[in-house]
Amino acid sequence: MNALHTWRTSWFAHPLQGQSERDGIAEHEVLLAVWLAFFGLLVFASWLLWRLGVWQMLVAADPTLLTIVILVIFTAATLWVGRRSYLLSRQHAWLAEARALLQGPAPQSATLLTTLRAQPQSWVQCYLADLIAKGPGHWRGNGQLTDLLAEKSHGAHESAWWFNAALLKLGLLGKVIGFSIMALALGSLDSIEATQTSTLLKNLTAGLGTALLTTMTGLVGNILLGLQLSRLDRVADALVADALELAENGLARVFPDR
């Protein structure tokens, strides 16, 4: 009970600071937890498909090996998303620290600038420090600095989206190759004889299997990776929006006469 009373007293004594710290921790934990849960489901599904022999069937039915290429790209991109999720979660935690600095008594600009410069890994703190360095008469002219912050939070995602589109295109390429195999098999026959029926059916089945399996793998990979990248973009958008709000409201207290 004493511990509970102490916590309630400290919380209501500093409600804004306590709220920001709680929100920063929640954002950090939720973002990582969502990706880890998603990755865990992927690992379990992969193990289950291996136990059922689906992976072996895909490799055996695809002589072009495009299915393996798609899986390798998807796995590498998913691991990159995990690393990026951790980075963005850290940026949200540093954003909460910057908010706590500006929610207390109005600090001196020189002192605040020194404190913000001490965390060069934080995009938001560097953004705020650059605004303060522009001086009281120019800190609201933040268009170029905002574009720089947006580039840091979103720029790397463009390459990931390109690889996401490449998964779909590789699947379509497998479809074209599969139907080409079928067309070549039919075109190589001068006449259909009973002795050639089994060979013809084998070639047609191989071509159709390549076309369908590569397309299916590319579509599934495109959908799953797109879900992850959409989440990353949403979190990056929230980071930039919170940084803009913090700059407009927080720095107005640092430069109250402007």
Rank of each mutant, 00 (worst) to 15 (best):
L244D: 15
R117N: 09
G218P: 04
A33K: 14
S153V: 08
E193L: 03
V235L: 07
V81I: 12
A3C: 07
E97Q: 04
D23K: 03
Q17T: 00
L232Y: 08
C126T: 02
A238G: 14
G82V: 09
P105E: 14
R51D: 13
K169D: 05
K152E: 13
G24M: 07
G174P: 09
L219K: 02
D62I: 14
A211H: 08
G18H: 09
V54K: 08
I192G: 04
Q103R: 01
T75Q: 15
K202L: 13
A76W: 14
L208T: 10
R99K: 12
L66D: 14
S109L: 01
R231Q: 15
G135Q: 05
S85H: 00
S153D: 05
R234V: 06
R51M: 07
T115G: 02
T114Y: 07
G40L: 14
A45I: 11
H138C: 03
I181W: 12
S109T: 01
G187A: 00
W94N: 01
V81Q: 11
A110W: 13
Q108R: 04
E158A: 15
L246F: 02
Q144T: 15
W123K: 02
H28C: 04
D23V: 08
K175M: 14
N203V: 00
F12Q: 07
L204A: 10
Q103H: 09
A165Y: 07
L88Y: 04
L189R: 01
G82F: 06
R8G: 15
N249H: 06
